[in-house]
Nucleic acid binder design. Structure first.
Length: 224
DNA sequence: GCGACAG
DNA sequence: ATCTTGTCGC
């Protein structure tokens, strides 16, 4: 898959922050009304000594979730984990993996936030700009924002707010199970993000693309 | 200064 | 993220 090269990655936090603010202005939240044909999931893991990061992307046919393709890449870790700057740590490996894809997915579901970020530029949004494709952030926990407790049933959700701005949703993907944090990354709306995550969720808490990507990257661990 | 803080 | 087994509950 062709990927844009918007900027380099050798930045300090001050530069990274300025870049996030600049890039946030490039995000587009256009509706994704069509049915997805190919849904991709992306997840990362680290080598045992923590010096390298591995990224795996799995492409699945929708709605039967047959695996069409997988791609992986390993890169040295350049930045420590600092909340709000995850994309500068995981981005390079994710992009390297995406460049190996033969298929062009309809949408990517990414383990991390999209706009549910202090500067609206979580990993899913950042990657969306490089991929120039629709992306959705589906995180297992909260980075920023406030919300009410969503209802207990699968499909129930509560909006996530930050500075009087709606930045995402806290979505129950499985009845009586801890909800996930869903936000658009790029090229889709908040409602699209919620709908697509639900359309990709079968019997588990995590949507299939992200769930399988996590399984694959865990199996890849020894090779990272 | 204190607490919060994706993966 | 990562270190780690069994266990309680739906």
């Amino acid at each position: 898959m062709r990927v844009k090269n918007l900027h380099g990655w050798d930045l300090d936090y001050k530069q990274a922050r300025a870049l996030q603010e600049e890039l946030a202005g490039k995000l587009r939240f256009t509706s994704f009304d069509k049915k997805p044909k190919l849904v991709a999931g992306l997840d990362c893991a680290f080598s045992k000594d923590g010096s390298r990061i591995g990224a795996v992307i799995v492409v699945m046919r929708w709605p039967d979730f047959e695996i069409v393709e997988t791609a992986e890449a390993v890169r040295p870790v350049q930045m420590p984990y600092v909340p709000g700057y995850l994309s500068f740590r995981e981005g390079p490996a994710c992009i390297a993996a995406a460049m190996k894809l033969k298929h062009v997915p309809s949408v990517f579901i990414i383990d991390g936030q999209g706009t549910a970020h202090p500067r609206r530029m979580g990993l899913a949004s950042h990657l969306g700009l490089f991929f120039d494709r629709p992306t959705i952030g589906c995180a297992k926990s909260r980075l920023t924002g406030e919300h009410d407790e969503p209802g207990p049933e699968k499909g129930d959700y509560a909006w996530l707010w930050d500075d009087n701005e709606k930045i995402g949703a806290v979505l129950r993907t499985r009845t009586r199970v801890k909800p996930v944090y869903v936000s658009p990354g790029h090229k889709c709306t908040r409602q699209d993000a919620i709908r697509i995550v639900l359309q990709c969720t079968t019997k588990y808490k995590l949507p299939e693309p992200t769930r399988i990507a996590h399984q694959l990257v865990t199996k890849m661990k020894p090779r990272i």
